[in-house]
Design a protein around this nucleic acid. Sequence first.
DNA 1: CCAACAGCAGCACGATCGTGCTGTAATACG
DNA 2: CGTATTACAGCACGATCGTGCTGCTGTTGG
Lengths: 212, 212
Amino acid sequence: MNKGEATRQAILEQAAAVAACQGLAGLTIGSLAERTGLSKSGLFAHFKSKEALQLQVLAFARDRFVDGVIRPATRAPRGEARVRALFEHWIETGRSPGPGCLFVSASAEFDDQPGPVRDQLVRDYWDCADSVAQMFRTGIAEGDFGAAADAEQLAYDLHSIMLGFFHAHRLLGDPKAEDRARRAFERILDDSRGGGEAGRPAHPAPHVAAVP
Amino acid sequence: MNKGEATRQAILEQAAAVAACQGLAGLTIGSLAERTGLSKSGLFAHFKSKEALQLQVLAFARDRFVDGVIRPATRAPRGEARVRALFEHWIETGRSPGPGCLFVSASAEFDDQPGPVRDQLVRDYWDCADSVAQMFRTGIAEGDFGAAADAEQLAYDLHSIMLGFFHAHRLLGDPKAEDRARRAFERILDDSRGGGEAGRPAHPAPHVAAVP
DNA sequence: CCAACAGCAGCACGATCGTGCTGTAATACG
DNA sequence: CGTATTACAGCACGATCGTGCTGCTGTTGG
């Protein structure tokens, strides 16, 4: 399987770019066909339905995200350095239009529309959040962060920071966006070290899968 | 002008509900007509174009947000209490499906599509951010927060927290979402008091309007 | 080198999109 | 109460949507 898979990959590349701008629902077969130079039916033959196309675009974007953000971070030294590397690569994907913001727009688009796409988005988020939380957890074990810090809360906070950064950077074009995100990031790191004012048990219960 | 304006308002109410679920682009004339019991052309006569409809839906949602979040907060005592009231009402709008998340989804949808809708979204955000920053600024002046705190950074941070909350609550259905958002909120308040480790000048320059 | 097959274009389909025009019934105003 | 204006339905239009089927053409394995 060579030729077909090659064009399929090329289609997905274009599709991810379009979906990052127009949204997953705004990704139409016709416009995508025109963009890739194929015919509508020729393109459609690769994906049995539009929903399958959306799911494959999502998988494509997820692979890109793992390759561009998660994996480079895991190559950094464990602990705080790894979390910092994660943050830097994450910011980097937001600076230029890439598939990073695809998850942001898709999440906002499908948060009220049940179906396989939404389910996949939920799964992908939890996978990502688990990976990030694990990095924080390692940092806590290494002593880089306070022993009372909550790794999952930190993962949640970091995700919020990135949502805010994408909003400020992409919609507003705010030149201060990156600086603001960076300061917020430094603050949650700082707080994780000294800020355990009263000893909450820091509930370490793992999350429960939301959708069966 | 009575009858026409009344139905126009009723249409906008339904439209805001639809747009909050399907997005502003997914808000179609046909489905909205069916939902309101009107005919397509009869509904269309109220708005000269779809873009005008989108802009009016946005204005409707903004009024709702001001009435439901901003104004109740300004009725609370100035300073920290007002900021806390703002947060509580903001969270409240996210708990049940309302027009609050309309801005979240619309912002993600139009962040790469230039035009009047996007411009309006940018203006609305800055108006909102200015109001919020003003509340923090008052709190700083009253001594509720540290004198070195940055009101606009705090407004930015609060917005990020809300973005994260909407994501976790609406997409993931995470029961811990509210608790997580609340903890993040307490942290930025706490940090604004003690956390001025080194005296940054806390640049108080007002923002510059992004789009002419 | 040839047969089997995969990749793709052409064309067609029903549905729905946004947008007009025309007529009629209801409303507002004097 | 009569009239002028407004609110709305009916219908129609070109365009585009997602999705199939048919057939040609290039690739590929034996």
